[in-house]
Every structure is written in structure tokens, then in C-alpha cells.
Nucleic acid binder design. Structure first.
Lengths: 267, 267
DNA sequence: AACTAAGCTTCCGCTCACCGGAAGTGCCGA
DNA sequence: TCGGCACTTCCGGTGAGCGGAAGCTTAGTT
């Protein structure tokens, strides 16, 4: 199911082996030694050495002063291309929402049963943070996740609710029946709230961003401290205004496939 | 010298071929058809088909509704790991600078003779923009670039000045002698200015960010319209304050190798 | 509706790039 | 000085990968 359980089964194809090396760095951002990479992928040391060497030469990975490997800058640059259109459009609007509210704001999409955070604007004010750009969190434990679930098609919602729901804090809602009811309320009210459900001390609220083609595309969220949880709703008008503007700017192309250009747009 | 000139010379190793496919998307963010990828890499169509297929299955590339390929979300996620520490530290401080000045701010490092923009904060105010996150611009034509050159070691500066200097607008400074003099002034004053040198209508100013280990690590820049060029200097105190705070937060580890952790920090 | 063409997908046998065991190198700490 | 660990280099056997060619699918044309 997972790519590799962290041991054994080195992929048969060279491409697969190369990708399995990159996958090592998905698990944690800690730099790895050659031996560690070799162990985690199950590849022979000499093979690892050669492949990693090629990756380094290209710039996909780079070495720190101790000779350990980490994802390289070139890969970061390349990755910026993915979903660039959407982020370029959304960013200044997130910025406006931040300026208005002085609260951390973020935008997330659903990706395979998890909420994927595609951008985030925040200042130096210390608020317990759970999300990070490029990171994932459970759909059922975040405000953005609940919005993404509530407004998606029923079979998606049911598929998620059918799985065991991970409990991140004592406050995480893990009962499928109660959660289904909560999602109905989200659908009715047009927003979701999560209070300390992924991280102690942190509360958040989210509203949907719809696609022109219909259906939900993303969710716009705002984070505050637990103490401010009761006052989260006062930000709703601003959030909805920004969500509408993002919808208008994003226009026709699908958020869910993130910035991939639509049909060969006739010039 | 260059990776491939866009034709011929398919790399001998499979790894190289895979990377040359990814390189295709560095040239422009436009989605490509299989045939285009095949042509640009010089790989046989059937080979391209197989390799791209594996890349797609893993999530390194993805297809849009027309079947064209583009960099995939998984690579974007992975790329977020590179330099994450530095961006996580700098971001809220850039945000503060933006809040203070209401001007686009960005941070760049030198990477092989170009300025690489590693982060950027901006609102909806329409200012002609040249830089983008993950993008590169010539060192000699930007304020951040001039700072990066002026404060780097002399041999670096001379190496850049020895090359032919590209003219991006009629205002770009391309005379090496005059530029050397300008850089001396930058070193003396502690900041650099560029007015419409990469993009008409846009002016910018930048200050250095030093590393604890000594030497310049990055440059902090601020963008405004040409009309405001004379008033750029008034932002200097705020910029210098933020630069100092970034230096303090970044601490000991090298900016130039971007967020790679220092020695196996003894716990 | 029949025809054309361009782009994509699948197939398969030959061959050369890749694999990995083993030997070599360099660095540390004892 | 020595042993141990991590990395690097070497090299011959072999199976993964290559690419020509044949089929398939879609869109455009008469």
C-alpha cells in the first residue's frame, strides 16, 4: 500500500529506485547519510552511492557540511511550478485577509483523504501552529478539512468516515455518527470550526472556496488561540469576501488539479 | 555545459534520462505533451512513454484534462523540505516588514551567478513585479543582486563582472567599470538600489543579511513603483531592523546551503 | 460515414547499462 | 599504531531497458 514500508522490496525499475530514494526524505526532513538511505530503501550500498551521486550532480539532493544528504534547491525550484497559478492568485488575497484580521490564514485542498496546505500567511505573533505549507493534516480534525468534507460529494465523505479516525488530541472528534451530524451542520451554516482538535491551544475556522465548474475546490481557514475561539465567527464576513474574490480570480480552471492549465485555451 | 541544449544527447544513464525529463519543465511552466517531452529530451517516444508513466504513477508529474504533463504536487511537497528552516524563520519577519511598509518584500540568495528568490510577501496592490519565489534574476540588474555581489568575496564579484552583462531594460547598468564603482558605493553605504533595471516601472532597494560565520548569506529587498524611487531610502531603518532579526534567528547555520542543518548537533 | 493523420500505447527480442560483491581509501577514536 | 566504520571505486555477468514497429484512439476533413 505505502510506497515501501521503509525496508525491503527495492523497486525493479531504475526509475522506481530513484524515486524511492527521494521518498526517503518525505518521511522526515532530517538529513540522511548514505548508509541510512541505503538501509531505508533496501538498495545495495554501491547502488545507492551511484544513484545518489547522480541525483546530487543534478541538484535533486545536496550534501551538508557533514556529507549528509537532504533535498536540493533545484528540486524546490522545480516544485514551485506545480500549482503556481493558483498560489499566485490566492497569495495576495490571503495577504489581504491577514492584514484585515491579523490572524494566521491558510488555504488547503483535499488530496487523498487528507487536507494538503498549499499556502499560508502568518506573522510573528505566537500561536500554536499545526499546519505548514506542503504539509498534510487529517480531514476530520481541522476546520478546513471539515469544510472540504462537508461540501464534497457524499461518497467521498462516507469513504473518510468509514475509516478509523485518528485522535490527535483529547478534543478530536472521532465518532463517525457525531461527525456526520457535525458535517451536516457545516453544510447548512457554510463554515466549520475546530477547537484544539489537532493541536492544544489552537482554534480555527474555515469557509469553502467553490469552483466555477461546480463543487468545492479548496478551503480558506483562519487560526487563533483557544481563548479566542468564541470570537472566531466575527471574521466570517471578511473570510467569505476573500473566498468570493479567490473564486472569481481563479476562474474556470480546476483547483483540485492545482494550477494545471485548462483546455488548450484558444488564443 | 548546460543540461541539454533542448535536443540530442540523451543521457546514458536511466537516472540522467529521468532527470532530463524533469528538466524540461524548468524551461517554462507550460504543460507538455508526451511527444514534446520526447522531442525536447531526445529520448525515443516509447522510452519517454515508459519513464513518464513511472513518474506520473509516483506523482512527480501529473496530467491535465488534455493529457498534457506538468510537474506534480508530490514534487512540490517534497521540494518544500529544501530550505524549510530558513523560510520558516524568515517568513514571519518578512511579514512584519510588509505590515510596516505595505510594500512587496522579498529575500534572495546567490546561486551560481544569479539571484534566487527564496521567499516573497506581497498584497494586491499592483506593482510591476519581476521576481517570483523560486525564480532567478541577474545579479547585476537587481537591488538584492547588487547587495549579494558587493558584500561577497572579491573573486566572486570579478567573476560576474567579467561575463557579458545582459540588458533587461534600457536602464540596466551593463558597463563593468561603472558597475564595479557602483558596488563599491553599495559596500560603503550598506544598501543597493535598482530603478527599472529588470522591469519598467519598478524600483527596489536591498540590504545584506550576514551569517554568524561571517560573510553575506542573503539579501532582503523591498519593491515600489518607479514614482516612489526617491523615497525608497525611508524604508531603510525598518529593513535593517528586520535584517538584524533574521540574522539573530537564523543563528549559526549557513544560509548559502539553505536550511541544511549544521553539524550533527549534539543533543 | 469513410478517410487521414497525429499522438499515444503496447509489444518483444537484442544488447548494453546496471547491479552488487569485493577490494580500496580515508577518517576517527582508542 | 591499530581497528572499525563509512564511504568510494572497480569490474564481470546478466536482466532491465531500449526503441523499431505495429496497433489503437481521437480529432479533423471531405
Amino acid at each position: 500500500m505505502a510506497d515501501d514500508a521503509g525496508r525491503a522490496t527495492p523497486p525493479a525499475s531504475v526509475t522506481g529506485r530513484v524515486l524511492s530514494i527521494l521518498s526517503v526524505f518525505e518521511k522526515s526532513l532530517a538529513p540522511r547519510s548514505l548508509t541510512e538511505i541505503s538501509a531505508e530503501t533496501g538498495l545495495a550500498l554501491s547502488t545507492t552511492h551511484r544513484l545518489v551521486g547522480e541525483l546530487e550532480e543534478w541538484g535533486a539532493v545536496q550534501r551538508d557540511p557533514n556529507g549528509r544528504y537532504q533535498i536540493g534547491l533545484r528540486l524546490w525550484e522545480l516544485g514551485q511550478h506545480a500549482g503556481r497559478q493558483v498560489r499566485d492568485i490566492a497569495r495576495p488575497l490571503l495577504q489581504d485577509l491577514y492584514s484585515l484580521t491579523q490572524r494566521t490564514v491558510h488555504i488547503a485542498i483535499r488530496e487523498n483523504g487528507e487536507a494538503l496546505y498549499i499556502d499560508r500567511v502568518y506573522g510573528t505573533r505566537r500561536v500554536p501552529q499545526a499546519s505548514r505549507v506542503g504539509g498534510r493534516l487529517p480531514l476530520h480534525a481541522t476546520a478546513v478539512g471539515k469544510v472540504l468534507l462537508a461540501f464534497d460529494e457524499p461518497w467521498v465523505r462516507e469513504a473518510i468516515l468509514a475509516q478509523p479516525l485518528e485522535s490527535r488530541t483529547p478534543h478530536t472528534h472521532v465518532d463517525p455518527v457525531a461527525l456526520r451530524k457535525e458535517l451536516e451542520l457545516v453544510l447548512e451554516r457554510g463554515y466549520a470550526v475546530a477547537i484544539e482538535e489537532v493541536r492544544e491551544g489552537s482554534a480555527s475556522i474555515a469557509v469553502p472556496i467553490f469552483q466555477r465548474t461546480g463543487g468545492i475546490g479548496a478551503a480558506l481557514g483562519l487560526v487563533d488561540e483557544r481563548g479566542e475561539a468564541d470570537a472566531l465567527e466575527r471574521h466570517l464576513p471578511a473570510m467569505r469576501g476573500i473566498a468570493r474574490r479567490i473564486e472569481a480570480s481563479v476562474g474556470a480552471f480546476p483547483l483540485r488539479s492545482l494550477g494545471i492549465r485548462p483546455s488548450n485555451a484558444r488564443p
